[in-house]
């Protein structure tokens, strides 16, 4: 039996955006893809230990996932993500990620650090995948087949997200035919919240203290930036006099603006921000001011760090939700009071 070459993908950061694409392509090349386990205490601790202490939690976490993979794989897949839309770049820490990891320890497997810089998505994607393919001396036909397959999966994944699924749900349904999928039907919930922030903070149950799951449990409808179609987001880019330089920050800002201005059915905004995050210092203030300027839309900042426990976050969520319910009820009363003849 032929022993397969193993390549490791850390389960965080751009994983939430690109995992199906990368996995499909790498497997098509004949590699065995190894995903690091879901974040747990050990991974977090390892990450904290390996990273410069001034880094943000998500970057520390990434190092932890690398540690979880390092003895299990022949290669680490850490592409240098520069741009996904030809306009903004990823956060500078993404840009320097392969170097940060490479110089953090001496005992790491070789890193596949091919640069991903998109001008036009399809053409640039092919160039990117082609380079990776040749590194593993794949045949041209294999690369093209992998590219097509990976592109399709990527499209389906983001379609599912745009229909309201969270990444973990969309990943499960990737191979189910569309007609058999039961799509979530939003709007039934009494209260709907926009939960904005970076996918790697929002969707990681461990680091976010089960935020989404807990909100769902108390019957709250949730919309995240990943659930909004790209063209709706792009429209909002004209709304700000100045956009950010960073891909995920723009997405978070645009989705909040989109939901405030277009969707109108939002009862409040939760901004999930990571301790030590540079871009968020700006983004958070911007969102807070925007919410305030739109009829004092309730706004909650949830800051996550290596010590934030689930209990603490949950208490704040509950208080916020209670406040929203109370607000809705008093509004309702006023409405009925205003009806003549009552």
């Amino acid at each position: 039996m032929k022993i397969m070459v193993k390549i490791g993908i850390p389960r965080t950061l751009a994983y939430y955006t690109f995992y199906p694409l990368w996995k499909t392509f790498l497997e098509e090349l004949g590699l065995e893809v190894v995903l690091s386990p879901p974040t747990n205490k050990k991974i977090l601790d390892l990450g904290v230990q390996e990273t410069v202490n001034d880094a943000c939690v998500p970057i520390k976490l990434y190092h932890g996932h690398v540690m979880a993979l390092k003895n299990k794989v022949d290669f680490l897949f850490i592409p240098r993500l520069v741009s996904a839309d030809g306009k903004s770049t990823f956060c500078p820490k993404f840009l320097g990620l392969p170097d940060m990891v490479k110089f953090s320890r001496e005992d790491l497997p070789p890193i596949i650090n091919t640069t991903f810089r998109v001008r036009r998505f399809r053409a640039s994607l092919f160039g990117f995948l082609y380079k990776i393919g040749t590194k593993f001396s794949a045949k041209k036909t294999t690369i093209i087949r992998g590219y097509l397959k990976a592109g399709q999966i990527h499209k389906k994944y983001h379609y599912l997200l745009s229909k309201g699924f969270f990444p973990s749900e969309a990943l499960e349904k990737l191979h189910t035919p569309l007609k058999d999928i039961e799509f979530p039907r939003p709007g039934k919930e009494k209260i709907t919240l926009a939960v904005v922030g970076y996918p790697y903070s929002i969707f990681d149950p461990y680091i976010s203290g089960n935020l989404l799951q807990n909100l769902r449990k108390i019957g709250i409808g949730i919309i995240t930036p990943e659930n909004i179609a790209n063209n709706s987001l792009r429209k909002m880019s004209r709304r700000l006099p100045q956009n950010f330089f960073w891909y995920y920050s723009n997405r978070a800002a645009w989705s909040a603006l989109h939901l405030i201005e277009k969707a109108k059915n939002i009862d409040g905004i939760i901004h999930v921000t990571a301790f030590g995050c540079g871009p968020d210092a700006m983004l958070n203030k911007l969102l807070e001011l925007e919410a305030k300027n739109h009829n004092q839309l309730p706004f909650l900042t949830v800051s996550i760090d290596e010590h934030s426990g689930e209990a603490g976050i949950l208490t704040r969520l509950e208080a916020f939700v209670d406040m929203l319910i109370h607000k809705k009820e008093t509004k309702g009363e006023k409405l009925s009071e205003g009806i003549p003849g009552n």
């Binding site: 956060c91 820490k93 320097g96 110089f103 953090s104 030590g276």
Partner: peptide
């Protein structure tokens, strides 16, 4: 500055450098 993004990246390469 504390939380300065590019300099944090640079710093993590400093020990090696």
């Amino acid at each position: 500055p504390f939380t300065c993004i590019p300099e944090i990246v640079a710093k993590s390469i400093m020990p090696h450098l």
